[in-house]
Design a protein around this nucleic acid. Structure first.
Lengths: 159, 159
DNA sequence: TGCTTTTTGTTCATCGTTGTACAATGATGT
DNA sequence: ACATCATTGTACAACGATGAACAAAAAGCA
């Protein structure tokens, strides 16, 4: 009786779909996490986009701007705007490749490496704190779902 | 034996933490979804931020700018910039409240309602397509995890 | 070799978002 | 009633992100 009573209910508002509601939650969580991280990184004078760059240079020394942009899912022009800032602050270095004079190879300076480690500490702590409510196996389920989404969206991106 | 073998592994780079990797996947998926949605909404001449506004007006007619900003987790100034655009395009209406002359009550015009329905159709289709790989129960797990994160981050936000 | 195409990075104009300062209105307390 | 404080929306400057147009270098091909 009070099951759902679908009678002529073809209305189907988007927010009645379970997948839609799930995704809205994901988007909200992402937005909030970003804002919180921005606040917690403020005293290091960097923002999430900068941290994304630094972490990738930490992992992949000597990467090019092109590769970096691809990993971050942003345009090359974005890197052209942000990287000179980090370079002026002495956090990174840009050296031209001798084999291919088009590319600039990026690497962290010692100061940059130190700052990156501090920032990663903050980010990791924030993530751990926010996810402690979820058992590891749930996190794995989340990760798998997200990987699938990424694969789906990337597939038709480069078609 | 091949359980984890933690030996002297205190290195613990962030990307070795399962929760960290999970969250990175969430952030990436979110970014990709946003970009894809932007492309698919292009022919309607609106972007995700506009759609967020329209959907909320669709659900909550007569909402104020303040309430809208709070729901969207953005600043009031943001609404002050975007809403006049939508008003000029004849998609929404802003009427002053008579009881409280400070607030502006927002509502969709018929044209706005039509456009919103088209856009929601697109968004719903995109979400369904991206999540068809994940069983509903996984989506529920994801939603629960995200709700917990949202609650955690909101709690210390308004302290 | 010489021509075309691709790749890499920069520049620029445009737009969304933020935070701050501000004006107008309402609510509170004496 | 009056002063004080809070709330709502706006104006403005600063910044990140985007896409298009551009120059330089490399790769592919005749």
């Amino acid at each position: 009786m009070n099951k759902k009573q679908v009678t002529t209910e073809h209305h189907h508002f988007p927010w009645d779909h379970p997948r839609f509601r799930s995704w809205i939650a994901v988007a909200r969580a992402c937005q909030l996490m970003q804002q919180t991280l921005t606040r917690e990184l403020a005293h290091l004078d960097i923002k999430p986009p900068h941290l994304d760059i630094l972490i990738n240079l930490y992992r992949f020394d000597g990467i090019t701007q092109q590769e970096l942009a691809r990993k971050l899912l942003v345009g090359r022009s974005n890197m052209s705007m942000l990287l000179p800032q980090l370079e002026k602050r002495g956090l990174i270095e840009r050296r031209g490749d001798e084999r291919d004079k088009r590319v600039l190879r990026l690497s962290l300076t010692p100061a940059g490496r130190t700052l990156t480690e501090e920032a990663m500490e903050i980010q990791t702590a924030l993530i751990e704190k926010s996810l402690t409510g979820s058992p590891i196996e749930d996190c794995m389920t989340v990760a798998q779902s997200m990987e699938r989404i990424i694969a789906t969206l990337l597939k038709e991106d480069g078609d």
